[in-house]
Nucleic acid binder design. Structure first.
Lengths: 340, 340
DNA sequence: CTCCCAACTGGAACCGGTTCCATATGCGCA
DNA sequence: TGCGCATATGGAACCGGTTCCAGTTGGGAG
């Protein structure tokens, strides 16, 4: 309702002085500033961010593009981004990217373009080269989380390395009959995470010279997915592996529940290792490689801020975040073969 | 980069005609419109939403205030809101309200006021009368989800009724030794949900004349919370109840996992019913009262749109959403007393 | 044949801030 | 004493749209 002109009138100064007093730019005497601030408080004045953005060109608003809101990893990342942004005085505008190609294009061609956001953080999304150039042509920083994209700064863990370490943990305990229950590499949505983790497992197995049999089975990236796949995989005691590398903690937890239901003791009869550091991992005593998604979100905001303030033109960086092996009670040495 | 003046120049018309052609307001001949649209497409013109909002007074942006992003209920609601808003051509600006009072005030006094949002949806937040008046004084619609607030339109389930129905389901199966594992009513954050569900359970128990012993035990609203509380509650076979009404599905699932670990058969030795309709309920064969949170989000957007377009001044409504009892295999008649 | 109104277009004001420029004052330094 | 600079303030232009108002044209009604 009240505009800066009202504040200026009440304080007995010009619009420009009122603006300087409130925004802190330029010279204003201490007593004038106080008078203007009093006047503003008195009539409950708040800047119109539209008018302000219109002339300054920046909005103090960051767009976040994300494919899922309800999945653990993504909601954690979002939470990290949100808390960092609000602390820095920025708004967060949320765009959920569905599989629908039309809607995706709409978000990029329409929503992100209207000078509403100062920067874009893309989580778990493989941007096309056109999308990258489009966003770049707006002169806005872009940061990706969860995979490397040509031409933009990204934050991610080394998925190959992480999966390899998980596998090596089992190998070092003496396991050789290891199955990787991971995401289907043919699924487009998850940004090569699936295929990279599979690669890591394969590398570790190859390096250890373990080459017999089928070591990979696809599973949906969820607890029910791991449960259903686990039930069928573990049903036959003769073909059963001694250890499982799950593509994510959700799958691992599903497998543990399935194993319990089948009466399989963990870890004495079956070791399970996950990747993620899920909230439920501790409760299931799950050994896992923790990646700290909310920290990734925080780091992304730092990067975005850095590019907005100082180093707008510095080259794109690919930052690899550390992971941490947390050993709990879901992994141990394989059972002695009772009858060979 | 390119402004509407550039489009107008290229199309050989005035700014005002270009604006009319692109926005669709007022008279423009078909061929002029076509020329303007071509020109706009040619130089990649997109409206500046700031400039537009500045004069029209609305932003096509809705603020969502929410206390948690990672909890199941809230992320589901958020997803529903997001998909509806994007379909209606609206942006969503996300504010996560932490327990921190300073930050809460900052969001209300600063972020929400700057004419950036056309409306506010508050999820699971008990707004103070001051906050309600403040938001109302901005002339912006507010809709609440998850509890009734004086003076604003709200969408919620009837928590008392829902908890009563859950309890009645167990009573009708013949249970009398029923424990309610619910949220601590002293916790402020969750908007009286805890105390209302407790009330519903108590009402059903009273109506059935079941009055012996301790029927309520507080538990954190999470799977690990239900698990830990379940382990201690169920440890002693003599004091063990025959049925549990969980305050939410997360608690119910935690209890089921605890029971399995203790070797307690579900449902033959222990019936468990939840409230929510969680993603994992089916996998755990959990009988539950489903509340469809994403539909609540969708409904909230409908309400907000309604108030923005047609009925800005119609009286506040409290909409109660239906819940649905889904019976699975976690509930049955109580075990026959073997000795006693 | 007028008259009137709908259809169409351009000019200018306006939304609410920020910032450039001009002007004024006071103080330190040559 | 005079010059120059830092400090302080007001006036006016400007950001990029939308909308009001005035003016022109053409066609149907009276």
């Amino acid at each position: 309702m009240s505009a800066i002109a009202d504040v200026a009138r009440l304080a007995g100064v010009s619009k420009s002085t009122a603006s300087r007093a409130l925004s802190g730019h330029g010279y204003v005497s201490a007593q004038t500033r106080a008078r203007v601030e009093d006047a503003a408080a008195q009539i409950g004045y708040v800047v119109s961010s539209n008018a302000s953005s219109l002339v300054t060109g920046h909005t103090r608003n960051v767009g976040v593009v994300i494919p899922y809101i309800t999945r653990w990893f993504f909601s954690q990342v979002l939470e990290g981004i949100q808390s960092s942004l609000i602390a820095a005085g920025y708004d967060l505008t949320l765009y959920r990217l569905s599989e629908d190609e039309t809607q995706r294009r709409r978000i990029f061609d329409y929503f992100l373009v209207r000078k509403r956001v100062d920067a874009v953080i893309a989580v778990g999304i493989e941007l096309s080269p056109q999308e990258v150039t489009m966003l770049h042509s707006l002169g806005k920083p872009i940061v990706g989380i969860g995979g490397e994209v040509e031409g933009i700064s990204t934050i991610s863990i080394d998925d190959v390395e992480t999966a390899r370490r998980a596998t090596e943990h089992l190998l070092s305990l003496g396991h050789t009959r290891i199955v990787h229950l991971g995401g289907d590499p043919d699924e487009q949505m998850d940004f090569r995470v699936h295929s990279q983790r599979l690669t890591g497992v394969t590398q570790a197995m190859d390096a250890a010279g373990v080459t017999d049999g089928m070591h990979f089975q696809p599973a949906p990236f969820s607890i029910p997915g791991g449960y259903a796949t686990g039930l069928s995989l573990l049903a036959d005691p003769r073909s059963r592996p001694t250890a499982i590398v799950a593509g994510c903690d959700e799958i691992a937890i599903g497998v543990i529940i399935a194993a319990r239901q089948l009466g399989i003791q963990i870890p004495s009869q079956l070791s399970v290792i996950g990747i993620d550091g899920h909230d439920l991992a501790e409760m299931f005593a799950l050994t896992t490689l923790e990646q700290f998604p909310s920290r990734q979100g925080i780091r992304a905001v730092e990067l975005v801020m850095e590019r907005m303030l100082d180093a707008a033109d510095s080259p794109a960086r690919a930052i690899t975040m550390p992971v941490h092996l947390t050993v709990r009670r879901s992994t141990t040495a394989p059972p002695k073969p009772s009858a060979g």
